[in-house]
């Protein structure tokens, strides 16, 4: 019990110290850039979903996904691409494919050495999009 209390004290102190935006915690423009690159590598070598992206323009995907992550992490960017529902319409993406992509993102975040609390926040901001992306 005392150990648990100590753990939470440390977490609380850490949380109070991080007044920076999630974007900064992701490493700013450079951090997001390299996270998205790693993420795309992971997707590209994931047999569960790689084929989905066979005809996707990597440069465009990288630019739009980076802008979107910047925008949802309070990095000050405006994501000017189509909505998630529009982009993924007609693809009939399965929940298992969405989860595969989340696993690839987690692997990429681990590769980048991002702390758990930062990973949690990015995942929490992406999770509500699931309903717009899956099954349409």
């Amino acid at each position: 019990m005392r150990i648990l209390a100590a753990v939470f004290l440390v977490l609380a102190i850490a949380a109070c110290q991080s007044h920076s935006t999630l974007y900064q915690q992701l490493g700013g423009a450079d951090g997001v850039d390299s996270l998205v690159t790693r993420f795309m590598e992971r997707i590209g070598s994931d047999p569960r979903i790689a084929a989905r992206f066979a005809d996707t323009d990597p440069a465009r995907f990288h630019r739009l996904l980076s802008a979107q992550i910047c925008s949802i992490s309070n990095g000050g960017c405006v994501y000017d691409g189509d909505s998630m529902a529009q982009v993924h319409a007609g693809m009939d993406i399965r929940p298992a494919e969405f989860n595969a992509l989340v696993e690839d993102l987690i692997s990429a975040m681990n590769d980048e050495g991002l702390p758990q609390a930062v990973q949690n926040q990015l995942l929490a901001r992406l999770a509500p999009m699931q309903g717009d992306i899956v099954g349409h």
Binding site: F8, A15, Q116, A124
Partner: peptide
């Protein structure tokens, strides 16, 4: 599951 709940913990 609150992915980033209290104290940014899950």
């Amino acid at each position: 599951v609150f992915l980033a709940g209290w104290l940014e913990q899950r």
